[in-house]
Design a protein around this nucleic acid. Structure first.
Lengths: 225, 225
DNA sequence: CCAAAAGTGTTCCGTCTACACCCATGG
DNA sequence: CCATGGGTGTAGACGGAACACTTTTGG
């Protein structure tokens, strides 16, 4: 292997993950207390350094797996953050990724082990370095994505009620949605399938459970909410 | 200055620029023959390495200035590209940025000096490493941006005719637009101001020149095309 | 029996789309 | 005088927004 770029500086490369969850009609993010210097003890996103043998994306997937034990999460790049002084010690460039997870897939125990917790997106504390900015940008991209592609289901259990789905979209857009109009739109999308199963946890009467059918979606990918 | 991250690898960090221009009813990108190893002679985006004293964004602005002699260009980050083997020699992470420039502001001489030329977006050759992928992603983001924010003007002279503006939007979206409907939408946007000036270069009759008024836009920022 | 959530259609209004002809001028 | 691009209005279709009452059942 030859070195072509001797005259240029090298930098550390890290990944930070903005992990979105949805619970109790609220959109949340997983954050924790930073366990390393510099900035030990400050609120922070969960992240890690990119190893020599892995791409940035692989690093993000691995970091998410370490934290949640889940693979194949929905994950998208937010962007590169590279202010000179963003890390007080060394020059560190960080690539932010956001991920969508179903809070129920994620074990309470693991939360504690990694010292992270779900925090309402409306009530975020000040975070280490530029992590607040990362979250702002991730949120913007995630909102856009949820409006135009059927990925919101990643934040819900595989079987969900229409009320849950509506609450999710209300939390993400920050606006109330008319129930009848919402359900009318859902009916137009064949890939949101009604099952015969009923959820009784949310009401006395019970509500039908629905599921997202990816195959049906691929045949006629028309999503708009 | 302390070193906290001794145990991790460091990487080279570069910036690549996707420079969009609009000419002769076509959307174009500025590319050239790579003048350094590895990959010398291949078609490539214009780029450079990030210096120790500058942020990634500053590096992108500087690189654009070196190439075009223009400052304060409209510029947005496309994302980080970090496959392990994207550079055949060393591990190099590149952050791509796209920029919008008015082809007329850019001197023919400078094109030759830097060995770059305008290539129609429809007729791109194969480029070095992952540069084609960078352009695809940049194009997607740029299209989205032009639909929702008044930045298309950056691709036109400060005075432009409505036909020019329409051709621009047709080139960007790839679809024909109805002239009357287009002009009706323009009329609703007070910040696209008609001047008393007339351009005679495009037709015998002559066409009124318009300009984008940023102040008026800021008072009532409603843009949709 | 009542509180709490589930479920269901219609009307209206504004927006988008389709569409064709006259105008001014340089060569 | 004619070819070329500049400029203008209307009608019909469509999609989105507003809106209220009945059903079911656990406690």
């Amino acid at each position: 292997m030859t070195t072509f770029y001797k005259e240029f500086q090298k930098v550390f490369l890290s990944v930070d993950c903005i992990i979105f969850g949805f619970d109790n009609s609220k959109l949340k993010v997983l954050i924790g207390r930073r366990q390393m210097d510099p900035g030990r003890g400050e609120w922070s996103l969960y992240g890690g350094f990119v190893a020599a043998s892995e791409s940035i994306e692989e690093c993000a997937a691995r970091t998410l797996f370490e934290l949640t034990g889940l693979r194949n999460l929905y994950m998208r790049q937010v962007g590169a953050f590279g202010q000179v002084d963003r890390d007080p010690g060394e020059r560190v460039i960080s690539i932010a990724y956001y991920a969508l997870i179903n809070v129920k897939d994620y074990d309470e125990k693991q939360l504690k082990e990694h010292g992270v917790e779900w925090v309402d997106i409306q009530a975020l504390p000040q975070l280490y370095s530029d992590h607040n900015e990362m979250i702002r940008k991730a949120l913007k991209l995630m909102r856009q994505k949820l409006r135009t592609e059927p990925v919101g289901f990643r934040l819900l259990p595989s079987l969900f009620t229409l009320t849950q789905l509506q609450r999710l979209y209300e939390a993400v857009t920050g606006e109330e949605i008319d129930k009848r109009n919402f359900r009318k739109r859902i009916k137009d999308m064949d890939f949101i399938e009604k099952t015969e199963l009923i959820d009784k946890t949310g009401s006395k009467r019970g509500a039908f459970l629905y599921r997202f059918n990816k195959r049906t979606y691929n045949e006629d990918p028309n999503f708009k909410l």
